[in-house]
């Protein structure tokens, strides 16, 4: 992805966050400056955030003077985030051990040539470690295996 467009996109996202927070903040009681309501601080902040983010976006548009070219590594980005999400999913439906296998398996997708064997070995050892630590050592109530809720 192009640098300028990445910077521009981020600035736009920040501006959208600011505007959304402002609109939601309008529902809260603003109060007065003597007795500030719950809406006072959020409105001021989201307003300032929007202004600054828009300013940033414009300055990126009009000053594309950047010599560095940072790019996104999509593969690890997607793999790692899916792995964490997969953990959240697996631990709520299948228990701790499957969750560890899922998180290791999905993380290993972040490199092109990771290989199935190292991933399996790693998953095995981590699960073993988790079983020893949680079930044997700590006796924690997290269920190692389960199905459904």
């Amino acid at each position: 992805m192009n640098v300028i467009s990445l910077r521009f996109t981020i600035a736009t996202i920040l501006a959208v966050i600011g505007i959304t927070a402002f609109i939601i903040g309008l529902q809260y009681d603003f109060g007065s400056s003597q007795r500030m309501g719950p809406g006072y601080f959020p409105l001021v902040l989201s307003g300032a955030l929007t202004v600054l983010a828009v300013w940033e976006a414009f300055s990126v548009l009009f000053n594309p003077s950047s010599d560095e070219q940072p790019s996104l590594d999509w593969r690890p980005f997607a793999a790692i985030l899916t792995a964490v999400l997969g953990f959240a999913f697996a631990i709520s439906f299948f228990g701790l051990i499957p969750a560890f296998i899922v998180v290791i398996g999905l993380s290993s997708l972040s490199e092109h040539k990771y290989g199935l064997k190292p991933a399996l070995i790693l998953a095995f050892f981590v699960s073993l470690g988790a079983w020893l630590l949680f079930a044997k050592l700590l006796g924690i109530t997290l269920s190692l295996f389960k199905f459904g809720f």
Binding site: A83, V84, I91, A99, Y114, A119, L122, V126
Partner: peptide, 12 residues
Amino acid sequence: KYIYPVVIALIC
């Protein structure tokens, strides 16, 4: 490559 998946698992 053997370290970062474990780090991620530990964070989770």
